[in-house]
Computed example of a mutant assay.
Amino acid sequence: MTAERPVRIGAQVQPQHASYADIRRACAELEEIGVDVIFTWDHFYPLYGDPDGEHFECWTTLAAWAEATERVELGALVTCNSYRNPQLLADMARTVDHISARDGGEGRLILGIGSGWFERDYDEYGYEFGTAGGRLDALDRDLPLIKERWGKLNPAPTRSIPVLIGGGGEKKTLRIVAEQADIWHGFGGPDTIAHKHAVLDEWCARIGRDTGEIERSAGVSPRPERLPEDVADYAAGAEALHAVGTRLFTVGLNGPRYDLGPIRDLVAWRDSRAR
């Protein structure tokens, strides 16, 4: 299914409980270490720790990262579809794509997107929370509008911007992935991820899409089931996910002191597989 794809390592630099100087420093170090993708997330408040702690907005952060980095791909894991008009989001993504391009080359943006779930964001910023099904229907409706707007913008995006969809719903989310995404990102252990891959493959078969066109991505657990609770082995966690088809492996990093040790381990693991 994905054996021909290279292993890639991602780091989600969570924009919480840290100054922007801390965040920018972490991104610079991650690029030097050799990660393939740096992600942020799209929330307005911390997801854990002090709920009113320091926090920064997603897309202005991505624009700054696009200027400050040279090689890595960039994106949100994931943008909330509810927070921005799809036509505006398309223009924002196109602009960040151009900011990230170097010497006439292609841009480095990945449009990571999902239907949204963090109710406090909605309540505090005045968005209608609605229902999970309604938010997924909106995502299904808006993705074609985003792609259509990309075709109208002047200048156009520098490349066909990859679309990453996060979420594991089997009736709606994975159908939308099969129809509209280039990357699927999921959560869970190898058995869960393997099952989701099988469901996604079924959706691809129904619509006649080659399953190999969709890169499989997942968050890496530090504690595979076979290890005791006091042992953290990110490479072992990645190896278990690799065995079921995952090729993009991402670790979440929390401020203010971003621990890059797991990323160094995963980059070394990636490079050892390539030898």
Results as ranks from 00 to 15, higher is better:
residue 236 A to Q: 06
residue 105 G to M: 01
residue 200 L to Y: 02
residue 270 R to Y: 13
residue 225 E to L: 12
residue 136 L to K: 03
residue 13 V to Q: 13
residue 274 A to V: 07
residue 145 L to C: 02
residue 194 A to V: 00
residue 262 P to D: 14
residue 92 M to S: 12
residue 31 E to C: 01
residue 183 I to Q: 02
residue 106 E to R: 02
residue 143 L to G: 01
residue 245 G to R: 04
residue 56 F to A: 00
residue 263 I to E: 10
residue 5 R to W: 09
residue 133 G to V: 09
residue 107 G to P: 04
residue 31 E to L: 04
residue 31 E to G: 03
residue 161 I to H: 00
residue 270 R to M: 12
residue 244 V to A: 00
residue 144 P to I: 00
residue 93 A to E: 07
residue 178 A to Q: 15
residue 32 E to Y: 14
residue 191 D to K: 03
residue 192 T to N: 11
residue 247 R to E: 00
residue 272 S to T: 08
residue 87 Q to G: 09
residue 134 G to A: 04
residue 75 G to Q: 10
residue 90 A to V: 05
residue 207 I to T: 07
residue 61 T to F: 11
residue 197 H to T: 05
residue 184 W to M: 06
residue 122 Y to C: 08
residue 247 R to Q: 00
residue 140 D to E: 08
residue 172 K to E: 11
residue 275 R to P: 02
residue 44 F to E: 02
residue 30 L to F: 10
residue 135 R to Q: 12
residue 96 V to Y: 15
residue 137 D to E: 15
residue 5 R to G: 04
residue 201 D to L: 06
residue 67 E to K: 09
residue 122 Y to G: 10
residue 27 C to L: 14
residue 204 C to K: 05
residue 208 G to M: 02
residue 118 F to L: 07
residue 158 T to M: 01
residue 169 G to V: 06
residue 251 V to S: 09
residue 11 A to T: 09
residue 144 P to L: 02
residue 87 Q to V: 11
residue 86 P to L: 06
residue 65 W to R: 13
residue 118 F to H: 13
residue 81 N to I: 02
residue 55 H to R: 00
residue 66 A to H: 15
residue 192 T to K: 13
residue 261 G to Y: 14
residue 39 F to D: 13
residue 61 T to N: 07
residue 154 N to T: 12
residue 260 L to K: 09
residue 28 A to F: 09
residue 115 S to F: 05
residue 91 D to E: 13
residue 124 E to D: 14
residue 83 Y to P: 03
residue 136 L to E: 05
residue 231 V to R: 01
residue 267 V to P: 15
residue 222 P to R: 06
residue 220 V to C: 01
